[in-house]
Design a protein around this nucleic acid. Sequence first.
DNA 1: GGCGTGACTATGG
DNA 2: ACCATAGCCACGC
Length: 112
Amino acid sequence: MDKTEQGYFAQAVYDIVRLVPAGRATSYGAIARAAGHPGHSRLVGRIMAVCDSAASGIPAHRVVNSQGVLSAAAAFGAPGRMRQLLEAEGVEVAGERIRRWKQVFWDPMEEL
DNA sequence: GGCGTGACTATGG
DNA sequence: ACCATAGCCACGC
């Protein structure tokens, strides 16, 4: 995957994240698949790490790992910030994990 | 080019 | 439910 292709991929990733409804969340792997690049979940993570959600308006807090764990928590400045954003939308979080993950999970593929 | 690293995932104990 | 292992892929040194 060359630099240019990654640019388009990054755009696709951001577009998909913007579609995630408040109160729901999706995973890196699900996004990678929906963007047409299964197997690039780590790349999705790297892309999200530089998205600057505060300035871009991208709801990055609605992206967690395949188990519903807030693996990106450390990137939201103050500890507990990501969790706070989720709970403000009605998502219950126990420790670092989203409760009733199976129900909260939102699959981008089902919206196409 | 080798090697460690990371906002990942699936599988097995 | 928790931990280890093994694929995975792009980056930086």
